[in-house]
């Protein structure tokens, strides 16, 4: 079991790096989907206790939402908005990967500094959770397009999910469900908003949305 969850965590790190370094929006959506899938599967493998029906249901829900529903929605928004398929970051892709690796090192340092050292592969879980959260934040901060911002929120949510699994062990059902629903609504609203903004203004650059303040 442990080897599998370690593998999943490493794959999550890799999806984060791909998200940070990726150039194409479709690719980004796909990476986020894979990450959601991996994160959703993790609770099944993470804890050695028997598979309860609740656990399975939660995992299935997470996988369905994060791995399938959100990406489909976003993909639709992307198609309908008919925008250029490139990411247009504020900072270059090379520098972004560098930032990503620094964030990873920082998360390792942070979880060690916090002193919540745990045995075995759980040592990996906490930093990966932090890293995923920070990746989401970085995506939100450093990219032009509204769609990448939605993706950033999604990735952050994955991070919170991972942290929850790491810290609490058994995920409090209600809390997790609430977060998931929040994210669902957020994606839904953003999807519609993007659609409308795009129809209204013919672009979806956050940069230009700043004008709305007036």
């Amino acid at each position: 079991m442990n080897a599998w969850s370690e593998l999943i965590l490493i794959l999550v790190i890799l999806t984060n790096l791909l998200l940070v370094g990726g150039n194409r929006l479709t690719g980004l959506i796909r990476f986020a989907a894979v990450q959601g899938l991996l994160a959703g599967l993790l609770p099944l493998l993470a804890h050695s206790q028997a598979l309860t029906a609740r656990l399975v249901f939660l995992a299935a829900l997470a996988v369905a939402l994060k791995g399938v529903a959100f990406p489909l929605l976003l993909g639709r928004a992307l198609r309908e908005a008919d925008i250029r398929r490139e990411v247009e970051p504020f900072v270059g892709s090379e520098f972004s990967i560098f930032v990503g690796i620094s964030l990873l090192a920082f998360s390792f340092w942070l979880s060690e500094w916090l002193g919540i050292a745990q045995a075995g592969w759980l040592r990996l879980m906490l930093p990966v959770g932090f890293f995923t959260m920070m990746t989401g934040l970085f995506l939100i901060i450093s990219r032009h397009k509204a769609l990448t911002q939605v993706l950033g929120y999604l990735v952050m949510e994955n991070g919170i999910f991972l942290l929850g699994v790491a810290l609490v062990g058994e995920v409090p059902f209600i809390v997790e469900l609430g977060v998931l629903l929040d994210a669902f609504v957020a994606v839904f609203v953003m999807g519609i908003a993007i659609h409308h903004i795009n129809r209204e203004f013919n672009h979806m650059d956050v940069h230009l949305m700043a004008r709305l303040k007036e």
Binding site: I13, E94, I97, I101, A105, A119, R123
Partner: peptide, 23 residues
């Protein structure tokens, strides 16, 4: 190409970090 090389660098750094946390 530089992105590819930096990505490879990220992989090796990631591997190094993983060996650091390994107990």
């Amino acid at each position: 190409v530089p992105q590819l090389m930096i990505g490879a660098g990220a992989l090796s750094l990631l591997a190094l970090l993983l060996t650091l946390v390994r107990p």
